[in-house]
Simulated scan of single mutants.
Amino acid sequence: NLLTGNTLPDGGKIITGETVKFGYYTQEGISVKEGQKVIEVIRDIAEYIPLKKGRQLSAQQLLERFLFDRKKQYDFVEKLSGGEKKRLYLCTVLIQNPNFLILDEPTNDLDVVTLNVLESFLLDYPGCLVVVSHDRYFMDKIVDHLFVFRGEGIIEDFPGNYSDFRAYEDSLDASKKAEKASDAEKGQTTGSPWREEGKRSNLSYSEQKEYKQLEREIQKLEVQKKELQDAFLNPDITPEEIASLSKSLQETEQQIDQKTERWYEISLRAES
């Protein structure tokens, strides 16, 4: 990795600021001493993470947030399942309190509950975050710009998440089609293809009503989703509360996806 210095550049040089502290989650997994317990792995690195406004998160609290209860924290690492070892490895990276966090395919082999906890943690993360992932839904939640590799050494910095990028690319394709249609219709009667209702002019009254209702419902669900995500940030949250919140968050996200899909379907019909 060029950023962390594990790989040397073919040319030029990389200058890293004196205050930059990298945290690097790789696909290689965790390596621990024989006979170590879960809590010992974390405490060997640090006892706590400093948070905003003078608060701090202890090693025990961090493990609890990532679903290791007090009893589980004193299990031997070799007894953990593959998924639990992934979670522990993630904790070893976060407990280092990096201000530049690099995550390489972090969602591989993580269950839904753990993913929700990680997403909530990262939403409150104050440093720089670079994520390499094939999980578009995970990226949509936590990233605010993309590096778009076009090939031939061309890399673009796009402001927005993956869905924003796809919508942007689709709008460019639509613009090109509109230009071709306009060129083909030159000399014919001109005028707006839309009536006063704009995009929804091709819809029936019931579809227009549903379209507006869906927009309101999606907006309310997004607010509900944000409130659930914020609840994960409570340092005193219990494993039982995490499980309950994760279930509610998953159900809310499913409702958002379903309603957004229907909203998009109506939008396409309006443009046909």
Rank of each mutant, 00 (worst) to 15 (best):
N1G: 04
L2E: 10
L3P: 06
N6E: 03
N6D: 06
T7L: 10
P9D: 11
D10A: 12
K13Y: 10
E18F: 13
E18H: 15
K21F: 00
F22I: 00
T26Y: 01
G29W: 09
G29S: 12
S31W: 00
G35T: 03
Q36A: 13
K37H: 15
E40G: 04
V41H: 06
I42C: 01
I42W: 13
D44M: 04
D44W: 03
A46T: 03
Y48I: 01
K52E: 10
K53R: 07
R55H: 07
Q56L: 09
L57W: 08
L57F: 10
S58T: 15
A59E: 00
R65H: 09
R70I: 03
K71M: 13
V77D: 10
E78I: 02
E78W: 04
K79Q: 08
K79R: 15
R87D: 03
Y89I: 06
C91L: 13
V93A: 04
L94D: 06
I95A: 12
Q96S: 14
N97M: 01
N99E: 01
F100K: 00
F100P: 00
L103R: 09
D104H: 14
E105N: 02
T107D: 09
N108P: 02
D111E: 14
N116C: 11
V117P: 01
V117C: 15
L118S: 03
E119H: 02
L122D: 12
L122S: 02
L122K: 05
L122G: 00
L123M: 05
D124H: 15
C128Q: 05
L129I: 14
D135G: 08
M139V: 06
I142T: 12
F149L: 15
E152V: 08
E156G: 05
D157Q: 08
D157P: 00
F158K: 05
N161W: 02
Y162N: 09
D164C: 14
D164I: 01
F165C: 03
R166W: 07
R166M: 09
A167K: 07
Y168P: 01
D170V: 02
D183Q: 13
E185F: 02
K186I: 14
G187K: 03
G191Y: 08
S192L: 04
R195N: 06
G198L: 13
R200K: 12
S201P: 01
S204K: 15
S204P: 08
S206Q: 14
S206G: 04
K209F: 02
E210F: 08
E210H: 01
K212I: 12
K212Q: 11
L214K: 14
E215P: 00
I218W: 11
Q219W: 03
E222V: 10
V223A: 06
Q224N: 15
K225L: 04
K226E: 15
K226Y: 01
E227Q: 13
A231F: 06
L233N: 07
P235M: 15
D236L: 13
I237F: 10
E241V: 07
I242Y: 11
S248E: 14
S248G: 06
L249G: 11
I256T: 02
I256H: 12
D257A: 13
Q258Y: 00
T260V: 06
E261C: 00
E261M: 15
W263S: 15
I266K: 04
S267G: 11
S267W: 05
R269G: 09
A270E: 13
E271H: 04
S272N: 09
